[in-house]
Nucleic acid binder design. Structure first.
Lengths: 197, 197
DNA sequence: ACCTGAACACCGTTCAAGT
DNA sequence: ACCTGAACACCGTTCAAGT
């Protein structure tokens, strides 16, 4: 009989990683402290040692993880804004399971810091009302990703009756290349609008 | 001892109304079949008679309720689109407790029908790629309301430590008049962009 | 047809106890 | 310091039973 493997130590990072995997794979409603414990080969109660506020802390951490992005200032403020928006979209699309949290919870911790940094960068680059600009950019990204993920049918139960109700005709191929183009086109329009304010 | 009141009959409408009241007042996580039963003066199990798929059906119904809006065609397609967007924003803002569902669940039933109707109206008014236009308008409204509700601090637990972290400076007065102006301004820009495509 | 009561499997969280 | 086991209050849902 082989000896029991020495258990990998539990960390905040490993917990969050496993939680994202469950949420993305089975949906947020099935992300459970006990299931999370199973995935980590640990009793559920062990998680409380690393996330003292329990499931609320976990939800906050997940929202933060998917929302705390970073981008460097680029040539023009438009390029800077574009970099932020692309990074945000990528991070949100990577984890559709926790999108509801990102859309709903006000930024905290590193996520709030990221928003403040973005405002600073745009203000420094001469954008007149930088907070309003960042609000508009955030709204654009959140809305675009929400619609993308809705249309992808991610939220539908996997055991559906064959085909989902086509509530919107797919962009063209339904692929993400078309979605990328849509996103960039809308972003250009928004940046033009912000410049002409 | 006064006689027991004849109980008001349970209906789908009353159930949804009570569920919205709980979700808006205490948050979606506290919306529970048993609590919902209490609010309706009924055992939780009675709800299943009106919503056979149980809590999933309830969630679907809530998303539909807050998402199935209607608007009549107006003078120009821009005015038509504006009417749809204003109606959608109003409906979503009225029930912040179920906003996560509206942002996340693909439209079904009357909500999907509303989207199709909106596409038809714009197509009939001569908008070239009406489905793409409606996608963009939907994204705009969803994102705008998401940011508004985040900024309102609605999701914060009521028993906070005095003041929430100011992750974004308030628009100016923090009031909804400023938010209304922001919304209309962004909408104008988007409509201009859609026209110039 | 509509609602109840009891039951079942599961959930979040606490706390004393182990190592 | 880190994890476990047992316990508690609560949850969604089924089903037979009442009216």
């Amino acid at each position: 009989m082989p000896a029991k493997r020495p258990p990998i130590p539990l960390t905040r990072e490993r917990i969050i990683e496993a939680a994202l995997h469950i949420a993305d794979g089975q949906g947020l409603r099935r992300l459970t402290m006990r299931r999370l414990g199973d995935a980590l080969q640990v009793e559920a109660m062990a998680i409380y040692h690393h996330l003292p506020r329990g499931k609320d802390a976990l939800m906050d951490a997940l929202a933060e993880h998917v929302t705390a992005v970073h981008a460097e200032p680029a040539g023009s403020w438009q390029e800077t804004a574009r970099a932020w928006c692309r990074a945000s979209r990528a991070a949100l699309r990577e984890h559709p399971g926790v999108l509801a949290l990102a859309l709903t919870k006000p930024p905290k911790g590193r996520a709030a810091a990221a928003v403040r940094e973005q405002i600073e960068q745009l203000a420094e680059a001469g954008v007149p009302d930088a907070p309003a600009a960042v609000r508009a950019l955030r709204a654009y990204v959140l809305g675009a990703v929400a619609v993308e993920v809705q249309q992808s049918g991610w939220a539908e139960p996997p055991g559906g009756d064959g085909e989902a109700e086509p509530w919107l005709p797919p962009s063209r191929g339904g692929g993400s290349a078309e979605a990328d183009a849509d996103f960039e086109r809308g972003l250009d329009a928004l940046l033009a609008g912000l410049a002409g304010a």
